[in-house]
Every structure is written in structure tokens, then in C-alpha cells.
């Protein structure tokens, strides 16, 4: 074990293992996202199937505030951009920039959650509680699950930020940041579908 060639072999082996692990994490995460996509597709399908079937209470046109939601959508889009910049900075081994862009992404994510909180409380004031009608139930369920994903993402990014400050997020471990980025873009894309189907098409009709 202490002889030189074995030591060198061991090191080689370790590097190969680390590379394989990074590959596994990347691929595994894509596969996981496939099932997440089916999950959200089903929720959106349920929303559409029940659209316009509420027997009472406020309807989408009564409560939606499109300009504000558009701003929130732009905010989330922007956060995808800052996330990309964080990953690119990681590839360029610029740790300072990684921290900056990660912090910005987390802040933009928080802003989106803030938007959602004010939106929800406004709706509640308008009398749209969770179980008021099938619109409210399917709306809150769909956007609630999305919001929970955003919240999880923010916690994840904050975790990465803390590792970065402690010097644990080394360039060889770029995959850790890449999958967080992948997740973040996924959540963003889901929101764009929700925005289109629920908000834009829902009030256009």
C-alpha cells in the first residue's frame, strides 16, 4: 500500500471515480427531471381539465393581475441568466464571480417568492380561499407546488453559497453547481408554461 506505484494508481483510480461520479450525477439529474416534468404536466393537465367548471366564487379574470405576474416572470427569467453566469464563472475558475452570481440568483428567487406571497394574500382578500372552488384548488395546488420547488431551489443555492464561502466548492466539483443550475432552469421553464397556460390563455378567453 505504501509503495509508490500503487499510490499513484490509487490516485488515478480516485480521479476516475470522481469523474464517473460527476457523470452519474449529471445523468441521474436529467432522468429525475423527466419524472418531475411528468408530475407538473399532470398538474397542468388537471388545471386545464377543470378550467371554467367552477360553480361559484371568483374566476381567473376576477383576480389575476397580468402586469405584476409578467414582472415576476421576468424576474425568474433573469435569475436563470444569473445562474448561467454563476456556472460559467465556475468553469472559468473565478470563485469571486461564482459567489456574486449565486447570491444574485438567490435574491431573485426570493423576490419571486415574495411576489407569490403577495399574490396569494391578495387573492385571499378577494375571497379566493384554497377550497373556494375548483379553480382556486387547482390553481393553488399547481402554483403551490411550483413555489415549493422555487423555495427548495433557493435553499439549495444558499447552501452552495455557504460551501463556496467555506472553500468547499472547488472547480473540480463543477457538477454540483451544474445540476443546481439545471434544476433552476427547469423550475423556470415550468413557470413559463404555467404563466402561458394559466395566466395568459386563462384570461384571454
Amino acid at each position: 500500500m505504501s509503495s509508490r506505484p500503487l499510490e499513484a494508481l490509487q490516485q488515478e483510480e480516485e480521479e476516475r471515480e470522481a469523474a464517473l461520479h460527476a457523470e452519474n450525477v449529471r445523468l441521474g439529474f436529467w432522468v429525475w427531471l423527466a419524472s418531475e416534468a411528468v408530475f407538473f404536466a399532470s398538474l397542468i393537465g388537471v388545471y386545464v381539465a377543470l378550467e371554467g367548471r367552477s360553480v361559484a366564487g371568483p374566476t381567473p379574470t376576477d383576480v389575476f393581475d397580468l402586469p405584476v405576474t409578467t414582472l415576476a416572470t421576468l424576474d425568474l427569467l433573469l435569475s436563470s441568466l444569473t445562474m448561467v453566469l454563476a456556472v460559467v464563472s465556475m468553469w472559468r475558475r473565478n470563485q469571486g464571480a461564482v459567489k456574486l452570481w449565486l447570491a444574485l440568483t438567490a435574491l431573485l428567487g426570493l423576490a419571486f417568492l415574495g411576489f407569490q406571497a403577495t399574490e396569494y394574500s391578495g387573492f385571499m382578500r378577494d375571497g379566493l380561499l384554497f377550497n373556494t372552488n375548483v379553480f382556486s384548488a387547482s390553481f393553488y395546488t399547481l402554483t403551490g407546488f411550483h413555489g415549493a420547488h422555487v423555495a427548495f431551489g433557493v435553499a439549495w443555492i444558499v447552501g452552495l453559497l455557504i460551501s463556496a464561502f467555506r472553500g468547499h466548492l472547488r472547480p473540480e466539483e463543477a457538477h454540483k453547481l451544474e445540476v443546481a443550475g439545471l434544476y433552476w432552469h427547469f423550475v423556470d421553464v415550468v413557470w413559463i408554461v404555467i404563466f402561458t397556460v394559466v395566466y395568459v390563455l386563462g384570461t384571454a378567453a
Partner: peptide, 21 residues
Amino acid sequence: ILLLLDRIAGTGFFVPAAGGN
């Protein structure tokens, strides 16, 4: 999840009288 909500949160996803299916 939807059925659970129908049962514990009073939603009507699967209740025709409430507009559900």
C-alpha cells in the same frame, strides 16, 4: 395528492357537484 386534498382540505377535484370530475 388531489384526493388527499379533497379529503382533508375540502377541495372538490373529484366532486361533480363542486365542478370537479
